[in-house]
Design a protein around this nucleic acid. Structure first.
Lengths: 205, 205
DNA sequence: TGCGCATTGGACCACTTGGTCCTATCATAT
DNA sequence: ATATGATAGGACCAAGTGGTCCAATGCGCA
């Protein structure tokens, strides 16, 4: 992929995460990516919409590198991985100083009702995310109560994190996210079978 | 307050909850409220911004009627009230068929970073909401573990509900919200002191 | 040398945005 | 009778929107 293209995508990603999709104009993106003019932009993207879709994809891939990779890590106890994943979400949010949360949550709230194309794509993002957590829970099932509903629990985790990121943004206070993350871990721990021990943390002791 | 004013506010509230604040134009509101023209609108509101603020206030008051009133209900066991409150949020969402969630969550995601005026007002809404839950938890403290942190727990409840509403909107599936609501109740129940019983449900048996 | 893509730069398009201003009509309360 | 506020309707504004088109340059690759 050409250099310019990614440059445009990066600039757009920043702007969209700051101001939302509708409030980010093509001219803003052009300024942000230091292009010479409209023709230059439309040389790479056929419309603003297409730009948005590609930004969404890229953002997901980036997030996948950091967040989902942790969920898949084969050498660590699955439930331990889940905690690390939650920590990663907190860390990601910290980087922007508590502002601009998960780019998916933002776009979801902005466009879920208004723009079907985006809604479907965001749904797919959440689904891949959820399925990764589900398979992790499946892997951890020896340590979990028999009645744990992986579908429901995975949704709960995502919802709690998205909600936490949103509140953190509104309150401009990272400790909100930290507190919720800690509670979420406790909620997950609630599903652990009595007497079950994390396999890896035991080895480490 | 004049009839027209509330008519405009109602139309605006609907439009904003459907398409967001930035994507709702003054002309849209004028059409929605069946006004004769711009001058008619600006006869009642000095700017679109002011309109937005008043819509936010109204929406909060309306929500307060339904949701917060339940939290205050003096004749019901506090923890039972909390469950009823969660049910009310689910019911509210059901009315719009799983679409357009909490108007605060929507506006929060859209404007928290971009528009300080809205951010502050939304923060105030969440705070009043949280404080109502906090005082409920305080009331319920005889039934709760000593180490329950009311501030954190109240935030967790709000975050989980906001996140749940968001996911429900994205997935266009009300059962998502219902599942998360059920899990949230279980999480709250986790904080109940061993042997404690809900005062009122006992009376009813 | 020439082909094709990348880049530059700007004119231009129809349309929408929030907002102002002006005039005129109508009812109601003083 | 008169002032006040609601209603109506339209002209107008500067600025911004996404998007098109064109002409002229680079620039490397065959």
């Amino acid at each position: 992929m050409s250099d310019r293209r990614t440059q445009i995508l990066d600039a757009a990603a920043t702007l969209i995460s700051e101001r939302g999709f509708t409030s980010t104009s093509v001219d803003d993106v052009i300024k942000g990516a230091k292009l010479s003019g409209k023709s230059h932009f439309y040389h790479y993207f056929k419309s603003k919409e297409e730009l948005g879709y590609e930004v969404l994809n890229r953002q997901f891939e980036r997030f996948a590198e950091r967040g989902l990779a942790i969920l898949r890590e084969p050498m660590i106890d699955p439930l331990e991985r889940l905690n690390l994943f939650i920590d990663a979400v907190v860390a990601l949010q910290s980087e922007s100083g508590g502002r601009r949360g998960s780019p998916f949550g933002n776009l979801a709230a902005e466009l879920a009702d208004a723009h079907e194309g985006f809604r479907v794509r965001i749904e797919a993002v959440f689904e891949r995310w959820a399925s990764q957590i589900r398979s992790l829970l499946w892997e951890a099932r020896p340590q979990l109560h028999d009645d744990v509903d992986a579908v429901r629990l995975s949704r709960f985790i995502i919802a709690a994190l998205e909600g936490a990121v949103l509140m953190t943004r509104v309150k401009r206070d990272l400790s909100v996210l930290e507190g919720i993350a800690a509670d979420l871990k406790r909620f997950i721990a609630m599903h652990i079978r009595d007497g079950a021990v994390m396999q890896h943390s035991r080895n480490l002791e």
